[in-house]
Structure formats: structure tokens, C-alpha cells
Design a protein around this nucleic acid. Structure first.
Ligand SMILES: [Mn+2]
Ligand SMILES: [Mn+2]
Ligand SMILES: [Zn+2]
Ligand SMILES: [Zn+2]
Lengths: 148, 148
DNA sequence: AGCTTAAATGCAACAGTGTTGCAATTAGGG
DNA sequence: CCCTAATTGCAACACTGTTGCATTTAAGCT
């Protein structure tokens, strides 16, 4: 709900500006994930013009406040690995230091397959990414919180 | 193995060129996924210069032949959804028609958490994408194969 | 080994995405 | 209504990815 997000903005001391309200509303209306320039285009059709830089900064804030979140994509050539895509490609990524660990687990694949198939979907490959903190960064953060 | 990939290229009637061999070798050496411009930089350090367009075309071919695969990323603002990232964000994407279904499953999350934690990783959010065929496209493909 | 030619690469030019620094505007408290 | 820090807009840039066309090259054939 847009109202909830607005309350969170205020509670955290952020201004409730026209651009921020507009981005919230368009995301709410869309009922699906939107790319930054999608947002700009949709708003423009309603006669509302926002600079793309503003949209990027607003989305970044929203993600920081957990009002929004980024969605994975493998559309571009973000990265490329040798070897078939089939099977398991699971990553854990530390949001602090960027450390990446790759692993595989047959059990998880099978469960995902089952789930997809229950909706008529025939899985060929899986990719997944869990975000969080690596053990080092987690330790540091705990220490921080203890001091602060 | 680079040799295997070369054999597959030949078997499918593609030329085994110097640029293709160099990309294969650099991916093999790296032992991790590389972005197109990473590949260009690494090769340049070895005194080998490849045009970036060439690298893109080679990677596209490799992916088509299953010698390589694209890796997910949520680095950029690919897309942005309203709502917290925590919990489950699972997508099944049809490689044929692009249809997307989103769903959530607590069980899968818990298993992924367990797995990550077993390597000292503290999970905060999950994203996953299974690629395959939706029921429509699967039906069509089966029919195709039956006729052809 | 030299020819031949389709396939592949390089080059130029472009479009899309995302970032930065700074000037102008504005939300919201006093 | 003023004030000011926060936010937005603007300009300029860097990075990623694509397209069309000229040039080069792998590999099959004398
Ligand atoms: Mn703009
Ligand atoms: Mn280049
Ligand atoms: Zn870390
Ligand atoms: Zn489909």
C-alpha cells in the first residue's frame, strides 16, 4: 500500500515529495516489477515528467528502506560461465563486500522442479541467488551494533 | 575443458578461430564467471586484443551451443518491485515466449537458508529463476517434434 | 602450398542504462 | 511566511550492448 510506504518515509525523516509519491503510485498500479525507464515512460503517458536520475535515486532509496526490491535478470550478458546452464547454479552474495560463493544442490533443484511442474511449467535450468552477509561481514556488523 | 568445446564447435560446423579459442581459454583460466568486458581486459593484459563486439558475438554463440551460460544478477536496477525483498521471489520464465510466473514457497526458502548457513552465510533474501517451457510452448514443441 | 569463398572479425556509429557534480527548487519545521 | 537542508533537474559522462558494412581468415579444394 502506498500509504504505508509514505508513513515509513516520514517516520525515517525523508520528505514526501511529488516524485516519490508518483513512483510509488505507478509501481502500485502496475502490479508487476518495472524497470526505471518503464516507470519514466508510464509516468510520461500520464503527463508527469520525471528526470531519469531522480527515478534512479528514488528507487535506490526505496530499496534501502525495503519499500521496494531489485529483481534478478539474466537478460543481458551480465556474466558468463563456461559449461552448460543445466543443473544447478546457486550463488550466495554478500551485500556488504560482494563476496560470492557458488554451490549446487540436487535436492533444491528437485523441489523447484516439482513446484514449477505443478503449474504446468517444464523446467530446464535453475539459477538462484541468496543475498545476505558473509561470515566476516556478519561478525563486523554484530560488533558495530554492540558498540553503537 | 577447452578441447571438448572446440570439438563441439567443429562438429556443428563452426570455425575454430583465434578469438574463439582465446575466449574459451580465458574462461577456463578464470575458473569463475566473467563479464564480457572482464574478458576483454584480461585478454588485453596478455597482449591479445579483441573487439568487444566480437566477444559479445562469441559469448552468444557459446550460450546457444551450451558451451557457456548466462548468470543471473541483481546488481543493476534491472527491475524493481514494490514491497520488501525478504521472503520469496521465485520466477519461472519461458525461454520461448518469455511468459513469467511469480510464486513463493516457504519450504524452499528454509532449505536455501540452511544451505547458506552451513557455509557461514547469513541469508536475508532469496531470488530464483527457473528457465524452461510454459505449458503452451511445451505442447507446441512436442507437436513440432512429432511432425518433423 | 596456393585458391576460393563463406564465415567470422573489426570498425564506426549508435541506443540504452546508470552515475556524478553542481545549480535550482521545494518540503516542512519554526 | 521564511529558512534551510533535502531533493530534484540538468549536463555531461562512462559503461554495456547492438547493427550494418568493410575487411580478414579458416578450412575445403585443387
Ligand atoms: Mn532523462
Ligand atoms: Mn571495443
Ligand atoms: Zn561480506
Ligand atoms: Zn511459453
Amino acid at each position: 500500500m502506498v500509504q504505508d510506504s509514505i508513513r515509513i518515509l516520514q517516520a525515517q525523516g525523508y520528505k514526501v515529495t511529488k516524485p516519490r509519491r508518483q513512483v510509488l503510485e505507478i509501481l502500485e498500479e502496475a502490479q508487476e516489477s518495472l524497470a526505471p525507464y518503464d516507470i519514466q515512460r508510464l509516468l510520461r503517458r500520464q503527463g508527469k515528467h520525471l528526470n531519469h536520475v531522480t527515478i534512479y535515486r528514488i528507487l535506490e532509496l526505496f530499496c534501502r528502506l525495503n519499500l521496494a526490491h531489485r529483481v534478478l535478470s539474466s537478460g543481458g550478458f551480465v556474466r558468463c560461465s563456461l559449461g552448460k546452464r543445466e543443473g544447478c547454479h546457486r550463488f550466495v552474495v554478500c551485500r556488504q563486500c560482494g563476496a560470492i560463493q557458488e554451490f549446487a544442490d540436487k535436492g533444491l533443484c528437485q523441489e523447484e522442479d516439482r513446484f514449477a511442474e505443478s503449474r504446468g511449467f517444464h523446467t530446464e535450468s535453475h539459477l538462484s541467488e541468496s543475498s545476505g552477509l558473509c561470515s566476516d561481514c556478519y561478525r563486523k556488523q554484530v560488533k558495530q551494533n554492540f558498540i553503537g
